[in-house]
Each structure stands twice: as structure tokens, then as C-alpha cells.
């Protein structure tokens, strides 16, 4: 069993996992240097994998799904959740949209998977940043309210991460050419701009802004300013609140 043709005949049983140990070892050494045999093995592997579909159909018991989820909850992905679950989720989504016969779609699936993966990673990262900035024992908060009814706003100041998260409710979007601007105010000093923002049509906004290092404001306030913002407030603030725990 030293010639190439001899090895070539091992590709099918190798893909079926049916070679005795010594033969398997020898063939794997040959595979390392033979692209033709590797291609053979790949093709036979696809055929072998399809045999799973030849098993007589058996209906899983109703409780199995919950058991799978329960047991998975006990074990964390080895590579870290952040890398592991998007792969699985992306794979599930891609298979769901792409494949009638999942076994023969590597190329399509690979392309779609990377697209989905990138999108999911980006979404996950921004969600992680947001949640991480708020759910922290060292985070200070301020509730801002108008003198009349709505709108309202809650701010989170995460000193460790240098982030301010702003959540606005019932605040109509700023008129065309105008923007909202958030200020941090230390008593006896000029207001410091934390950045500009706008709300969506529903009057809501959740915005993460960089927090100036070393600043410990007593108050925050929101004004309406010309688009692009102003160096100092040009109007009376319509939302004002006191910082707690900062």
C-alpha cells in the first residue's frame, strides 16, 4: 500500500471512518501531502454525512428541546460566549434562509454566514457596550424632567468607562436645522457640552456619549441648539436634573 492508486482506494472507507487504526494513520500521512486524495475524502465525507438522513425517522420527545437548553446553560462555550454564540446563531439563520439541502451549500452558506456574522457582531458589540455602561455599581444617574409634563430623560455616567448613556422619552425630534445638546454643569463653572443628539419619531433616544475625564458635574441640562451644537448654551434648558452617586 505505497502507491498513489492504493491510497486513493482508501478515501471512501476513510470518510466512513471504517479503516483499521494502522491503515488510517498511514493514509492520514499520505493525505497531508496529496491534494487529490484530500479532495476525494471531502467528496466522500459529504456522501457519508448524508447517511444521517437515512436513519429511520424517530420523533424526539417533547421535553428534549428544554433538556438541550438546560444542559447547555450549565456549560459555557469554551471559546467565550461572544465568539461562540454568533457562530451558532449565524449558522442557524443562514441554514434557515439558504438551504434546502444543507449539506451541499458550503460556498453560499459561507458567504452569507460571514455577512450575517459581521452584522450580528456589530449589533452585539454595541448592545454590550450599552448594557455594560449602565449595569455597573459605580454608575451615577440623573433623572431630568420638564417643568410641565413629558419629556423625561435618564442619564447614566460610567466613570470607569468614560461613558454617558442618555435615555430620552417623549421628546419630539428637534426641528429641522436644530439639535438637542446635553450639558454637564459644575456649580460656579461654565457648562461643558457632553454632545448633541436627536430623538426618533417616537420621541425616544438611547445615545452613548464620551464623558470628559475628571469632570464631576452637579447638574445636567438639555437645550435646543442650532445643528452641530453650540460652545455654550444659547437658550434656557428645558430639561434639568441633579446627578446622584457620581
Amino acid at each position: 500500500m505505497t502507491d498513489h492508486q492504493g491510497y486513493r482506494e482508501l478515501a471512501a472507507p476513510y470518510a466512513l471512518d471504517a479503516l483499521a487504526a494502522a491503515e488510517r494513520t498511514a493514509f492520514e500521512e499520505h493525505l497531508a501531502e496529496c491534494a487529490a486524495c484530500r479532495a476525494d475524502v471531502q467528496a466522500f465525507r459529504e456522501a457519508a454525512a448524508a447517511l444521517a438522513l437515512a436513519a429511520p425517522a424517530a420523533a424526539p420527545p417533547p421535553g428534549l428541546r428544554e433538556r438541550v437548553l438546560r444542559e447547555a446553560r450549565r456549560g459555557r462555550p469554551l471559546a467565550g460566549r461572544r465568539t461562540a454564540w454568533p457562530w451558532l446563531a449565524a449558522a442557524a439563520v443562514v441554514v434557515a434562509v439558504a438551504a434546502s439541502y444543507g449539506y451541499w451549500r458550503e460556498r453560499t452558506a459561507r458567504d452569507e454566514m460571514s455577512t450575517v456574522l459581521v452584522a450580528m457582531r456589530a449589533r452585539l458589540d454595541s448592545a454590550d457596550r450599552l448594557v455594560g455602561a449602565i449595569l455597573d455599581s459605580t454608575v451615577g444617574t440623573a433623572d431630568l424632567a420638564a417643568t410641565g409634563k413629558a419629556p423625561t430623560m435618564r442619564l447614566y455616567w460610567n466613570r470607569a468607562r468614560g461613558l454617558v448613556v442618555l435615555a430620552a422619552f417623549d421628546l419630539p425630534p428637534a426641528p429641522s436645522g436644530r439639535t438637542y445638546q446635553l450639558w454637564a454643569i459644575k456649580k460656579g463653572q461654565n457648562p461643558v457640552s457632553l454632545g448633541t443628539f436627536n430623538t426618533a419619531a417616537g420621541g425616544r433616544a438611547v445615545v452613548t456619549l464620551p464623558a470628559p475625564a475628571g469632570l464631576k458635574p452637579d447638574l445636567s441640562a438639555v437645550t435646543e441648539e442650532p445643528a452641530g451644537g453650540s460652545p455654550q448654551p444659547t437658550q434656557q434648558p428645558f430639561l434639568v436634573g441633579t446627578w446622584q452617586g457620581i
Partner: peptide, 12 residues
Amino acid sequence: ASQFDPGRGSVG
């Protein structure tokens, strides 16, 4: 899951 290589075959 991180070891899964879509180049080598489908998830199934």
C-alpha cells in the same frame, strides 16, 4: 462552536 469551519461542510 468556534471550531466549526464552514469551509469543511454544513452545520448539519
